[in-house]
Every structure is written in structure tokens, then in C-alpha cells.
Amino acid sequence: MMELIEPFTEYAFMQRALVGSLAVCLGAVPVGVFMTLRRMSLTGDAMAHAILPGAAIAYLITGISLIGMTIGGLAAGLLVVALSGWVSRSTHLKEDTSLAAFYLISLALGVLILSIKHSNLDLFHVLFGNILALDNAALLLLASICSISLFLFALLYRPLVIECVDPLFLRRSGIASALAHYGFLGLMVLNLVAGFHAVGTLMAIGLMILPAAAARFWVTKLDHTLITAVVFSFTGCYVGLLTSYYFDLPAGPSIVLALGTLYIVSLIFGGEGGYIKRVTSKRHLEA
């Protein structure tokens, strides 16, 4: 039994990794739940790529600097959100197309900039995060992003729900519709930046989507889904970190794979539309 706790009591870096990843999950997973409900899972993936050049430019200027790369990532992500939103609202292009256009430009720029500095190790750091090397400043940053994100999420919760179910209903209330839409995309960028410090740009989205997708196989109501998804994400981080410790595997992919396992288990055994349930429950009531 001790093996399950020992790494976290013995080693400060494991404690930090656990606290950091839990902070990221607490902020990011509720946003992830809404991304799956709004069919925006892949939008998130695009956005994760879009923040790369911001982080890369900041890295060119400041080196591996926590604050610098955070600001750079945020700036690039928000710029892509604003530009693609503006194009889709003022031209005939749909949002997915305009977003794809800007994120691809952004991604190409990011890879180009990173290659100028020729260091594969640094590139690796940006792409896969370094959850096992979080210092105090990084922890503080993740906790702050988590707090801001939860606060904004609570504030936007009502218009966001209405915007998802019945966008026309909200559009009549003027500013709230735009606030819900852009506010949500902003939340997505904020949490992706937090996620990229932990598990890297490419896997940050897994932290948001996988627990949300898994939770939907167990519960139906929205509030239950939010809570279940957060609990799932905590479990995934804990199991992932433990696996990475004992089998000497990189932490980011271990966490995402633990979450992936949870998702596949839910897919098969989930009580709400899981595979086995669907195949076996053919019984029905009389009325």
C-alpha cells in the first residue's frame, strides 16, 4: 500500500507535480466539459497549436522564462481567437475554416521560430511540458490561472449554458452572447497555456477532453458531469504520475495515457450508453 503514497511523501518534486497537475485539472476540466458539449474538441486542438508561436517568440527573447512564455502563449492564442472570430462574423467563411486558417499560419510560424534556435531539447520542453520540474513560481502561476479560470467560468456559466442550447435566445440579449462566446474561447486559451506548462502544448488538450468524454458515459446531468469529470481528471493525474515514477516514463504522456485508459474503460463499462450496457440491456418495462 505504501507504494501508492510513498513517492509523494518522499520527494518534493512529486508533490509539486501532483499539486500542479491538480490545479491545472480543476481549472481546465470544466472548460473541457463544455468543449465536448459544444462539439469543440478539435477547436481546442487547433488552439493548442495556435499558442505555440507566442511561446516560441517569447522563448527566443527571454529564454526558458515562465512568465514570458505564458504571456507569449496567451497573446498568440487570444490573437487567433479574435482574428478568426472577426473573420467568421464579418465574412461568409464559417468559424472552423477561419480558425483553421489562422492556427495553421500560427503553427508554421511557431515551428519556424523554434528551428532558428536549433535546440531539440528546448523544443521538446515546449511540446511535452515539464511537470516534474515545477518550481515555486510555476506552481503559483498554475494556481493563479486555476483561480482566475474558475472565477470567470462561474461568471460566464449561465450565458454559456444558454448559448450552447439555444444561441438565438441569447443573441437577443445583446452583449451576453458575444461575451459567452469569446469569454469561453479566452478560457480555453488560458487553460491551454496552463496545461502546456504541465504536459506540453500538444497534450494539454487531452487533459481537458478525455475526463469530460469519460464522464458522459456515467452521468447525464450537467452538474454531475462537471464534478465527475474533475474527479476523473484527478485520478488520471495521480495514476499517471505514479506510473511515470515506477516505470521511469515521461510524466506528461503517462498522465494523458492514464486518462485515455479511463476513457476506454468508460466507453466499454459506462452505465450511461457504455458498450456492454447497450448490448445487454434489452429488457423493458410494461409502460
Binding site: 444558454i162 442550447v165 439555444d166 451576453a176 447525464t220 450537467l222
Partner: peptide, 18 residues
């Protein structure tokens, strides 16, 4: 309207309070 969104009848009706 997105009928697949996980809301109860009461919750959807309550959006009329917005």
C-alpha cells in the same frame, strides 16, 4: 435548439429568467 445538451426540463424553462 440543441436537444442533446444535458439539461432538465426545469433548467431549460428557467433560462427564461435570464
Amino acid at each position: 435548439i440543441d436537444r442533446s445538451f444535458p439539461l432538465t426540463v426545469t433548467e431549460l424553462v428557467a433560462t427564461g429568467l435570464w
